[in-house]
Amino acid sequence: MSSYFRRQLAEYVEYHRDPWNCAMHVFGIAFLFLAAVLPLSLWPITVFGFQTSAATIAVVPVLIYWFLLDFALGAAILGAAIMLLSVAAVIVSHATTAGMWSLTAILIVVGVASQIVGHRVFERRQPALVDNPTHLLLGPMFVMAKLFIALGFRRDLAIIIQGQPRGATS
């Protein structure tokens, strides 16, 4: 874990203390990611002889960024991204263009609404990205870090996010 990521995560956590807000983020982030890649999944691209989509190409830089912040979390997010890119590919292969755009709009509305509700209702403060726009890219890392901690992995992340590892006594 880079020291930059450690500092950013510690700052991000201050905006995400309420468990309901964190739950809203799981859905909101997944919906917004899917909404971002869905339209790009319409455009096939051939790279080095392999058929892919503009969505896959667009995701690569942010995946590299996440790997650089923390390799294990980045690898887990890669797995989630592959799943969401696959879902997007299935949707565009079965939906009309109008249907795909309608679904994209719904995903954006529900994704943004879940973030707003999480912060306004449960956290009672503005989202972290209002104060620091780079936090837009930390959401997926935070959600994956919470999953790792819940599964009993990454005591180093638990110290940052929870203040002490689960099961530790003061």
Rank of each mutant, 00 (worst) to 15 (best):
S102I: 12
Q164A: 14
D18P: 02
S41F: 13
V90Y: 14
W66E: 02
A55C: 15
R17I: 10
F153A: 09
A113C: 09
V37A: 04
G99F: 08
F122Q: 08
L137Y: 05
L73W: 06
L63K: 12
T104D: 08
A150Y: 00
M100R: 13
V112G: 00
A54Q: 10
L69Y: 08
M24V: 01
D70W: 06
F27G: 12
L32M: 08
L84R: 06
T52L: 09
R7S: 09
A55Y: 15
R166Q: 00
H25I: 01
M83P: 03
F142P: 05
W20F: 04
E11F: 04
T169P: 01
V90F: 09
P127F: 07
F71D: 06
I108K: 03
G163P: 10
L151F: 01
A55M: 15
Y65E: 05
A158D: 14
P19S: 11
V87G: 06
Y4V: 13
I149Q: 11
L42M: 11
M24D: 09
V87T: 06
A72W: 13
S41V: 14
G74C: 05
R125M: 03
D156V: 01
P165H: 07
I108W: 07
E123W: 08
Q162E: 14
P44A: 11
P39N: 07
G99W: 10
A23E: 03
M144Q: 14
R125V: 01
I91R: 11
T97A: 12
V109P: 08
I29R: 08
W101P: 10
V26T: 09
R120I: 09
P39M: 08
I160L: 12
A168G: 10
D70G: 04
R124Y: 03
T96A: 14
V143L: 11
L138S: 05
Y15H: 14
F67M: 12
A35E: 07
L129A: 01
F71N: 02
S170L: 10
A10Y: 07
W20T: 05
G118K: 09
H25S: 00
F148A: 03
V26F: 08
P61F: 11
A88R: 14
Y4S: 12
L63I: 10
H94Y: 11
A113K: 07
F153S: 07
P39D: 06
L103W: 08
L85E: 14
A168L: 15
P39Q: 07
P19N: 10
F48W: 11
V110K: 00
A55R: 15
A158H: 14
L129Q: 04
L137K: 01
V121Q: 14
G49P: 11
K146N: 13
F50T: 02
W101R: 15
S86L: 13
G163W: 13
F71L: 13
G99L: 09
F153V: 04
G28V: 06
S93Q: 05
P133E: 00
S53W: 10
P133M: 00
L38H: 04
Q51N: 15
L136P: 00
P39C: 05
V130M: 02
G111N: 04
L40Q: 10
L34E: 15
V143F: 11
P61C: 11
V60T: 01
H135F: 05
A158V: 12
